[in-house]
Amino acid sequence: MSKKFASEDGSFKRQVSSFRETISATHPIYKPEKGRYWLYVSLACPWAHRALITRVLKGLTSVIGISVVHWHLDEKGWRFLPYDDSNKPDDVSFTPSAELKPYDELSNSGVENHSIRYGTDGTIDHNYHFERLSQLYFKSEPEYSARYTVPVLWDLKTQTIVNNESSEIIRILNSGVFDKVADPHPDIDLLPKELESEIDEINSWVYDNINNGVYKTGFAEKQEIYEKEVTNLFKHLDKVESMLKGRYETLKTTHFSEEDILKSFYLLGNQLTEADLRLYPTLIRFDPVYVQHFKTNLNTIRSGYPYIHLWLRNLYWNDKAFHDTTNFNHIKWHYTRSHTRINPLSITPLGPSPNILPL
């Protein structure tokens, strides 16, 4: 796939999401019900990763089902694994409560862009047996003409897309509208009122300069634009590092061990918030992919940012919602084999090894 991601001036422009509805008890159409809604996701996509993490954190794995697209993105967009009625794949009986296969270190040898391994390369479309995510978009809006992005929050009752903007999907899932039907889970609010303004402020510069900053760097098609974007990206990573260093030093005055510190080691307050959730998917991909693939190589997280590195490993190793939704195979295969304009030979680097260091 040699698709251009940059505009004529050589800079990356992100598409604006099209479907922006919500779910609430007072909504005239989209009301909270168990089994009514479905998430379509990619394990490689950081925007979809936010929704997957939130789904687990809020106890919604038996409330909202998921289908996972194949990691390879071709010129027609995302695809599902094929459904054959005469030879039904193993995951046809997939239920909303089913968990994804845990990540393991698979060799890159023998992995092809058209590999079909159910539960490893992706899943079928459990609801309509569609071949392509695009078919879902056209089912919802026959005249749709933009890109077919993930995540998609789908309503099985009206058979339409409720929302395809990840920042809004995670707020829908966090809002508490599904609390009556949710699984037992820690009482967590990712957007507490007393921190909302600070969360929004952090999200605004993290999104533009880090979440999207890695893409603006990696998809730049002129040297001067690349240098401008990569410099700006690391300027804001420095800002995150300074924030986390301050948090650590403050916690050290009231906690007796690092184990105790890590229980409260987040960007804001002493609790996990949406600010952590929205930063994590970018930074967990940083060393394994972005450093080499997007040329964000002024430094690495593990070598140059000790407090970010500790924060990242704490989330990954100490919280199943983060650990179990992070699939390094999908992440590395997708970027290195889908962006042939950047990596024309589609060779996937073996390193770094390991993808994330122990805590």
Rank of each mutant, 00 (worst) to 15 (best):
S140H: 02
M1Q: 09
V214E: 03
L359C: 01
V152Q: 04
G351D: 10
N232A: 08
A182G: 11
G246T: 10
G110R: 13
P96V: 11
N209D: 10
H334A: 08
N211V: 02
H70Y: 02
F219W: 08
I308H: 01
I202F: 08
G10L: 04
V181R: 06
H114G: 15
V69N: 01
E75I: 11
E249T: 13
I116W: 01
L73H: 07
K235P: 02
Q292V: 10
I331M: 06
I342Q: 12
E168P: 03
Y207N: 09
R247H: 06
F19P: 11
H293S: 13
I199R: 06
L262Q: 13
Q223I: 12
E227D: 15
Q15I: 06
S145F: 05
S7I: 05
H293Y: 02
K4I: 13
I284Q: 03
H49N: 06
C45Q: 07
N163M: 09
Y128Q: 05
P151F: 01
L173P: 07
E259D: 14
H70P: 05
L298S: 09
K245S: 07
N203H: 09
V181T: 08
H293M: 12
D104N: 12
H49Y: 02
R14W: 11
K320P: 04
T149P: 05
S175R: 05
M1H: 14
V177G: 13
N318E: 07
G65S: 00
F328Q: 03
W71K: 01
G176H: 07
H126Y: 00
K4D: 12
H27M: 01
S67E: 02
F256E: 15
Y290P: 00
E33V: 07
N108Y: 12
V111T: 09
S257L: 06
S7D: 15
I170Y: 12
E249Q: 13
K3R: 15
R55I: 10
H72K: 12
Y316W: 07
Y266A: 07
L136R: 03
P89R: 00
K320G: 07
V162W: 06
